[in-house]
Amino acid sequence: MSERPYLPCREIIAFLADYLDGALAAETRSEFDRHLAVCPSCVAYLASYRDTIRMAKAASIDADADDPPEELVRAIVASVHGE
């Protein structure tokens, strides 16, 4: 059994973005995985961090197929054609 100390939660959370991007060296990544295997708090943090990214994107994208405001279209065309 390994006697190595686990990375502290502080280190896990500091490098979470790199972990999700797959930007960590293999050895560091395996240390992350070893920590996550025994730390429910960091597992919950990782999941909610990932959910935060998904929700920010989904809540910001407005898929309504509105027509453009007519006065805006006219103002833009007039600004270019000098009408």
Partner: peptide, 15 residues
């Protein structure tokens, strides 16, 4: 190095 307030899982999938 532990969190002051341990994180808790969110109740539903984000989607």
């Amino acid at each position: 190095g532990h969190q002051v307030a341990p994180s808790v899982a969110w109740s539903e999938p984000a989607d």
